[in-house]
Design a protein around this nucleic acid. Structure first.
Lengths: 151, 151
DNA sequence: TATTGTTATACTCTATAACTATA
DNA sequence: TATAGTTATAGAGTATAACAATA
């Protein structure tokens, strides 16, 4: 399949997959942005506030406030950057990891009920596609790499 | 792969795929919920307000206001239900369809740039998985109404 | 009396603009 | 002067509660 037709088909499918994901996500008091930010910090390690804002597509002040809320809830902590006094590094706490794990297991549990209704063929194809989905999500987007690697 | 391990792996991957999707979505003045609601109406035809609220996991008043905003923007219209005077059916307008099409093509364009960076093998596997992804999103979820009520 | 949808009000989240501190 | 982050304020979006209309 040509890359462009694949992209077009994926663009439509992703829309519905996101709907599925939303319906699977537990109402754990975290907004979608908050959960995504927390997951990003867990995955990538302590991150600068500006980078987090760019990654999630929100403004710097919005991220300042979101991180403040997460900090008050004990899910992250602010750390000073030894190299640059202006910078704040945001790290996940053990409680933050536990919250993410809990959300994921709740989601997986609901998802299992749905996956069970698929045909074995569809399940096999999905299992085979997992690495490709992972690769798709791992392709660096402009927002990340530019400021991420440097400094 | 066992259904449960597949579900667990998918639950983690979906999280990142949603992040990808968010970064691809154009800032067209529609919130994620608004865009998802509009897409649902396009896909399923004129829908009752209560059903839309349950599908999107928001309360009935929130959906009333969301539909009012979409109506003011000319993307949907309210229609009375001939069978039941209490019911309002929400239908998409041509302008609504055009808005969705524009959003999707913008997303597909950005996605094409990402898909192009995958290996041919990964692209092939993804193309093969499209029907399964579609089936996954199409499995009816029994807890639609429940989630709406518990928020 | 139950169901469908709306209105009223408060709270959360985000954006823009102005500010502080460091480089 | 530029960059990282915060504070102040306003607006969008949502939830809960109370309401109106129809079944």
């Amino acid at each position: 399949m040509a890359p462009d037709s694949l992209a077009a088909a994926l663009a439509v499918d992703l829309e519905r997959i996101v709907g599925l994901f939303r319906s699977l996500s537990p109402a754990s008091g975290l907004s979608m942005t908050a959960a995504a930010t927390l997951a990003g910090i867990e995955r990538l390690g302590p991150q600068r506030l500006t980078l987090l804002a760019a990654r999630e597509g929100v403004t710097q002040p919005a991220m300042t406030q979101l991180i403040s809320r997460l900090e008050e809830s004990g899910l992250v902590r602010r750390e000073p950057c030894p190299d640059d006094g202006r910078v704040v590094l945001v790290a996940i706490t053990e409680q933050g990891r536990a919250t993410l794990a809990h959300r994921r297991s709740a989601r997986a549990e609901r998802l299992a009920g749905i996956v069970a209704q698929l045909s074995p063929d569809h399940r096999a194809v999905l299992a085979a596609a997992l690495p490709a989905l992972d690769a798709l999500a791992s392709v660096p987007r402009e927002d990340d790499a530019v400021r991420g690697a440097t400094r």
